[in-house]
């Protein structure tokens, strides 16, 4: 496992593979399937100040090599998370990344403050959820708003590194990467889901109650790799690559494009044990290719 060790924003990771927010519950749903202590980290389901009910059903629809979701950030709220879930999660030896969001700038800063004083290892602010009416993507698709919310959150915390999760639903992601960096982000994670839609031609109704939803899965991987590549040229802070990772080869692709770590998302639905397979395969890959440390691959794209 030595050849997978890495460090992001001063936080030590046993490997660069993190379970992505919204696809791994609060981590505890997976403990009877895999040893979650073998993961580099877990980004938990997006936390808000108050409990959130999410969108009406139907919330998901499968598409070609992917899926649409409009869960709407259903979660138990920050206090319940800290009281009920975090103490259980801390029993495992993995980094806990608290993914959080708000409907207003004030809500973002308030949740961030609470989490900053908790036992989590890093914060990841979601300014890119496409499925809620207030907050989320509205912050992530307007550079001024991105700056304001990231800057205010950064100023309200003092303990934990801040990751900003970017939306791919913009014309130039470099602008948003640079904006987040200049507003004080310690790292960037990219990408969130791509806004999509699917229609039942018999009823002529959308398959999701929210009409649109976020597209994820292997179908979006080329878009995600391209955006990580663009961000790597634009920012100096670490990039956590996300988007359609299904196996160790996909992880390598993101690293070569410029990622310092990755998050595995939809694949956890397809096979709840997949993330442990990916980590094992990365170790084998390093040994077979005489790679001392996997991070050597970072940004090594030959063009």
């Amino acid at each position: 496992m030595e050849n997978l060790k890495t460090e992001i924003c001063g936080i030590k990771f046993k490997n660069p593979v993190i379970a992505a927010s919204g696809t791994f519950g609060y981590g505890l749903e997976f403990t009877n399937r895999i040893d979650i202590s073998m993961l580099g980290g877990i980004s938990v389901k997006g936390i808000s100040l108050n409990e959130e009910k999410g969108n009406p059903m139907p919330r998901i629809m499968e598409t070609h090599a992917g899926m649409l979701n409009a869960i709407g950030l259903q979660n138990i709220g920050v206090n319940k998370f800290l009281d009920e879930k975090l103490p259980e999660l801390k029993k495992y030896d993995t980094n806990i990344i608290a993914n959080f969001w708000g409907k207003t700038v004030e809500e973002y800063t308030e949740v961030a403050k609470i989490l900053d004083c908790s036992d989590v290892d890093m914060l990841e602010m979601n300014i890119s959820c496409p499925n809620i009416k207030e907050g989320g993507i509205a912050f992530g698709t307007n550079p001024e708003m991105t700056f304001e919310v990231v800057n205010k959150v950064k100023k309200s915390i003092s303990n934990k590194p801040l990751i900003v999760k970017l939306s791919p639903n913009v014309s130039n992601i470099k602008i948003f990467g640079k904006t987040a960096e200049s507003a004080g982000a310690d790292a960037i994670s990219a990408i969130n889901t791509l806004l999509g839609m699917s229609i039942n031609i018999n009823t002529r109704r959308p398959h999701l109650s929210n009409v649109t939803g976020g597209l994820s899965g292997p179908a979006i991987k080329p878009v995600a790799v391209r955006m990580v590549y663009e961000l790597y040229q634009a920012v100096d802070i670490p990039i956590i690559g996300i988007g359609g990772i299904m196996n160790y080869k996909d992880v390598a692709e993101f690293f070569i494009a410029g990622a310092s770590a990755v998050q595995v998302g939809t694949a956890n639905f397809v096979n709840p044990e997949i993330i442990s397979t990916i980590i094992d395969d990365l170790t084998t890959y390093c040994k077979a290719n005489e790679i001392g440390n996997f991070t050597e691959l970072k940004g090594t794209l030959r063009t």
């Binding site: 997976f30 999410g54 059903m57 139907p58 919330r59 979701n69 869960i71």
Partner: peptide
Amino acid sequence: ERMACGIGACLGCI
């Protein structure tokens, strides 16, 4: 219900 994971993580089958 439609479900993605079947193990309580996706919250698609509420």
